[in-house]
């Protein structure tokens, strides 16, 4: 093939007046697929407190605590977003389907304490 310098010129000039491919984040919003593994969601009604999610969590980020009495159980899910690696293994491990993930990825905060959330 014949070689010459500056072969990309035409290609680059074609894009001069086209819309940029980059997004001015955070001014413009990112498009996140609904399948994206973001922050998890918890539905306490179905939870039986089996702790399978806690056992399988690779980052020890999730914990399920019983805030009710021994007879009248009421569960709460605590998640440390600073530890969570968003693998969603807990969602797979849950037999009752009370955990699910959402495409929420904007979770940054200024303090470590604020990253410990109750779901």
């Amino acid at each position: 093939m014949k070689r010459s310098p500056g072969r990309i010129a035409g290609f680059a000039l074609k894009h001069l007046l086209k819309k940029p491919a980059t997004i001015a984040y955070p001014a413009a919003k990112l498009e996140i697929e609904p399948h994206y593994r973001g922050k998890i969601q918890y539905n306490a009604d179905d939870c039986i407190g089996c702790n399978l999610c806690v056992r399988d969590c690779p980052a020890s980020a999730i914990s399920i605590v019983n805030v009710g009495t021994k007879e009248e159980k009421k569960f709460e899910c605590h998640l440390n977003l600073g530890h969570c690696i968003f693998c969603a293994q807990c969602v797979d491990s849950c037999r009752k389907g009370c955990l699910s993930f959402t495409p929420n990825i904007e979770l940054a905060d200024m303090s470590r304490e604020a990253l410990k959330v109750k779901l």
Partner: peptide
């Protein structure tokens, strides 16, 4: 110009 030639915002 450099950015726009690279399809960036600049």
């Amino acid at each position: 110009l450099y950015a726009r030639l690279q399809n960036r915002r600049g």
